[in-house]
Design a protein around this nucleic acid. Structure first.
Lengths: 252, 252
DNA sequence: TAGTGGTCTAGACCACAAA
DNA sequence: TTGTGGTCTAGACCACTAT
């Protein structure tokens, strides 16, 4: 005990700064309000701009702030809950089932990424790739690619001569065909990732922005009949896996 | 003449660097191998150390690298899948049910954080707080606090005179008592957070490290009878919500 | 003690959005 | 054009680990 540890707290400046700013956001700012710019804030707290930015980055990661180049830093609204679990009261269901919150955008035939190819049991084989997106209050919150082997939707007739204009229609045709397949189960994983350039553009973020990557395996006829890779903005989303609707429905 | 750089790709250096390093990790390094130190790497790529660090941070966020102060940067093993969903084949269950993967550590009576208090319907009221932890392969992957109102475990007799030594025992007593309560349903959310100082220590990370925060509401007797806030290391974990076991069991 | 990653500085310039 | 956040530099020192 001899060493009376008087404030030997080597707490980093940016960490302390983050706490101070966080408290200020709670008490002195309203949602949507614009903060002073980074140079002013840094001067006000007597730190370098890089240090101030370290604190802001943390707060943005936690969904407290929103920063936009050329515009400024604003106080972010609370994270929106995004339902990801079993569809409304119906247990598991294929993408594109009635009432699902996604918007179908496009379709192409492509070789899936290696991890997805392994899940589908046929690495390197071209499959249907259906691009979908999801918005909340006009803001994009997620983008998704659903990979479906051609053998799982055998009745599908695609005329390659249709051209690019029919992308969304072809995508919907794949989803319609999927509903015919009896879905046995699904399995989901969630992990942290950083947005690739194309996803970042769709999500209105910069490349590298933190995202929650939800991978869903759809099991039908004893095999993995589809894999959806959904990319959610980590700064604005809270993923919700609700059993409160699904379980009672199954029990009743 | 280095100025053969005709293509003015406004791609940030750190982003390009990250890609280069990522490819190198795939082809030239084995899991656990130590990378050259940051100063050497920066020199080798002809960038400032801060820029190199920006690329390393991204790779660490994606679980590709592990950095430890005083030691070095090593190639991280693939993320471990951590089962978070319905317990093995038994549908929903209380924490502490047989076979659950958590280790009970401690107990105290405390006022929960405001958001948890709201979920429990009684902000500002002291409740049981049970601390648990989870490891995989000897590495800590998650820490959790389960908040349970005293009114939900009325049969529990705690002797305050027991002292601190009985913390784990008191915690287990709370969990035992919970099993008596019929669990109606549960609801989970997942969001990105940054580790507070105490959680960071438990997870063997620095404060501010990215974590996946899983909030579970346990519903019993028509009310929220417990709230668990579980904090998983985002760099090493992939959360797995498996329905493949639970759904068939319920259907049969 | 030596070597590592973590923090911090004080600049500079760039890309972007809005006036 | 102006002002914002985003990128980058070339240093410095600190905290930690292993020897």
């Amino acid at each position: 005990m001899g060493t009376t540890q008087l404030e030997t707290v080597p707490e980093p400046k940016y960490w302390h700064l983050k706490t101070v700013l966080s408290d200020a956001l709670d008490s002195e700012f309203a949602v949507g309000e614009i903060l002073p710019n980074e140079r002013d804030l840094a001067a006000r707290f007597g730190v370098a701009r890089a240090t101030l930015r370290q604190a802001l980055e943390q707060l943005e990661l936690e969904g407290r702030l929103q920063r936009r180049r050329g515009v400024g830093t604003t106080v972010a609204p609370p994270r929106v809950g995004v339902e990801v679990g079993p569809a409304q009261g119906s247990g598991t269901a294929w993408p594109g089932a009635p009432g699902d919150a996604w918007h179908t955008e496009d379709h192409e035939e492509a070789v899936p990424p290696a991890p997805v190819g392994r899940l589908l049991g046929a690495p390197g084989t071209p499959v249907h790739a259906v691009r979908r997106s999801r918005t909340t209050g006009g803001q994009p919150v997620a983008t998704e690619v659903l990979y479906v082997p051609g053998t799982c939707v055998p009745a599908l007739r695609l005329s390659p001569a249709d051209g690019a204009a029919a992308g969304a229609e072809r995508a919907e045709a794949v989803l319609r065909e999927l509903q015919q397949l009896p879905l046995e189960s699904q399995e989901r994983t969630v992990e942290l990732g950083s947005a690739r350039a194309d996803d970042a553009r769709r999500l209105d973020r910069l490349p590298g922005a933190p995202v929650l990557v939800v991978t869903t395996c759809y099991i039908a006829q004893g095999r993995t009949a589809g894999v959806a890779v959904s990319t959610f903005r980590a700064d604005t989303c809270r993923l919700s896996f609700g059993d409160s609707e699904g379980i009672p429905a199954l029990a009743g």
